[in-house]
């Protein structure tokens, strides 16, 4: 899905936990996430900390969209 959307010239960031798959498949902008059942959350954290975690992950994704890349790149 990521690649097909990118083919329209739309920058797309893939937020995924198993980034090995994103890379094999060929996503160009990748932000690693927490765990498969809750990629951008962590139920074991207190509410505020979890919100903060998600805020940072989404920021990372937004930053990735503003960054030029020439090949599959992970934004750690």
């Amino acid at each position: 899905m990521v690649k097909e959307i990118e083919r329209y010239g739309l920058p797309i960031v893939h937020m995924a936990t198993i980034t090995t798959i994103s890379q094999s498949v060929g996503a160009n902008r990748i932000v690693p996430t927490v765990a498969i059942p809750h990629p951008v959350g962590n139920p074991s954290l207190p509410h505020e900390e979890e919100m903060d975690l998600r805020r940072k992950l989404v920021k990372k994704a937004l930053d990735a969209l503003q960054t030029e890349v020439s090949e599959p790149t992970q934004f750690e």
């Binding site: 899905m1 990521v2 959307i5 010239g9 739309l10 960031v13 893939h14 937020m15 936990t17 498969i36």
Partner: peptide, 19 residues
């Protein structure tokens, strides 16, 4: 299909999350 709609709607960037 989704990309086409987004492009036509003038979207500038996409965040796709996977589990």
């Amino acid at each position: 299909e989704i990309g086409k709609e987004l492009k036509e709607a003038g979207v500038d960037g996409v965040i796709l999350t996977s589990t």
